[in-house]
Amino acid sequence: MLSDMTGDEAIYGHFGAAGGYALAAQRAMHEFNTGPDTWKHIAVGQRAWANLNPRAMMYDRRLTDDDYRAAKWLIEPFRLFDNCLVSDGGRACILTSVERARDLKHPLVTIMGLGQHNPSGDLQKADYLAGPTGAKIAGEAAFSMAGISREAVDACQIYDCFTYTVEITLQDYGYFEPGGGKDWFMGGAIEPGGRMPVNTSGGLLSEAYHMGLTPLTEGVMQLMGRCGPRQLGPETNTKTPEIMLCSDNGGILQTHACCILRRL
């Protein structure tokens, strides 16, 4: 069974997504000096959002920098809180015409831009583990279609299978230079009240693992204004959002999709 899923990688005790992303994150540590000092901001920041979300698996569990540091290694360089949750559940997003949506009770959210890039099929041929990943070309395509720049984005919902995934995705979207995440994430930048809210449900790390639909549905619901105590806007001392950047990726950074949403 295990070998059916991982092929001959299982011979070496290499299993699943965590091992592959750990290899990616380790290479990134070598290339641009990232590491736990950057990733803790992502784990702790997203947990602060989950603490405002009663549906989040980690709703009633606080997480501090010290908790992050004290957690056990799973596959180094990842500690426990660098890893996403394992969840049962489901999400759905209903897509229809603008004309039909105008008749519905919720505010209208549209797709402004889409981009996709899928760089490779085999981990052993991957030369993008430390970036640029598929996020670079996918992001450029989505921004081009949307006709906006990064500065127009009010908040991000980034596929966060691991903390490092959030860093490399935002880096490849151009929010900071390689390694610049360590400063960019500081000061609660992505938390409630921060200058660029990220993964406002708690994300895959702290809300629930519903694959790419955790970020996408959160983006839609935030734009519709359906998020209760975690709603972007006056409730969380952030800007009421009009434009939301969402991402999804698959494999070990082998596939990537970027979706920019707008509230009409």
Binding site: A10, A22, L74, I75, E76, P77
Partner: peptide, 11 residues
């Protein structure tokens, strides 16, 4: 090129 240290036995 890169490496990962497993601290848990998944098999």
């Amino acid at each position: 090129y890169s490496f990962a240290v497993y601290h848990s036995a998944y098999q």
